[in-house]
Measured scan of single mutants.
Amino acid sequence: MIINNLKLIREKKKISQSELAALLEVSRQTINGIEKNKYNASLQLALKIAYYLNTPLEDIFQWQ
């Protein structure tokens, strides 16, 4: 199981879903879906999320 901390980290950094989506060149709905565990981010997208949030990938998506 993967624990998804994207919403928590994004909100801590005061970045909206729309802002993050624009940086990543995806839709806001994609970010929303990832945060609600409706969609799994591809490895490429997960790495981009970590880069733009300046946060280690394993802090955003944790295996349990």
Rank of each mutant, 00 (worst) to 15 (best):
M1K: 11
M1L: 13
I2N: 06
I2H: 08
I2V: 13
I3R: 09
I3Q: 09
N4S: 04
N4H: 04
L6Q: 02
L6P: 02
K7G: 07
K7F: 06
K7S: 08
K7P: 03
K7N: 05
L8M: 13
L8E: 15
I9R: 01
R10A: 04
R10L: 07
K12L: 14
K12Y: 09
K12F: 09
K12M: 15
K13F: 10
K13D: 03
K14A: 10
K14F: 08
I15M: 14
I15Q: 03
I15D: 00
I15E: 00
I15K: 04
Q17N: 02
Q17L: 10
S18T: 12
S18A: 14
S18L: 10
S18M: 12
E19H: 11
E19M: 11
E19A: 14
L20H: 00
A22Y: 10
A22N: 13
L23R: 09
L24F: 01
L24G: 01
E25D: 14
E25Q: 14
V26D: 01
V26P: 01
V26M: 04
S27W: 04
S27P: 14
S27A: 06
S27L: 03
R28T: 15
R28C: 12
R28F: 09
Q29N: 13
Q29T: 12
Q29A: 14
T30C: 15
T30H: 11
I31A: 02
I31P: 00
N32I: 15
N32P: 01
N32K: 14
N32T: 09
G33H: 12
G33M: 15
G33C: 15
I34R: 00
I34A: 02
I34F: 03
E35Y: 02
E35T: 03
K36D: 12
K36A: 13
N37W: 08
N37P: 01
K38I: 15
K38T: 12
K38N: 09
Y39D: 06
Y39A: 10
Y39C: 14
N40S: 14
N40T: 15
N40F: 12
A41Y: 05
S42K: 05
S42R: 05
L43Q: 08
L43S: 06
Q44K: 14
L45M: 10
L45C: 05
L45H: 02
L45T: 05
A46R: 10
L47K: 12
K48Y: 04
K48T: 04
K48S: 07
K48F: 04
I49L: 08
I49C: 03
I49V: 05
A50Q: 04
A50G: 04
A50E: 03
Y51K: 10
Y51E: 11
Y51R: 08
Y51H: 11
Y51T: 08
Y52Q: 07
Y52N: 04
L53N: 00
L53R: 00
L53Y: 02
N54D: 15
N54C: 10
N54V: 06
T55Q: 05
T55K: 03
T55S: 08
T55A: 07
T55F: 04
P56A: 09
P56I: 04
L57D: 01
L57R: 02
L57S: 03
L57A: 05
E58Y: 13
E58D: 12
D59V: 09
D59R: 08
D59W: 07
I60P: 00
F61P: 01
F61D: 00
Q62M: 11
Q62S: 11
Q64G: 13
Q64K: 12
Q64Y: 09
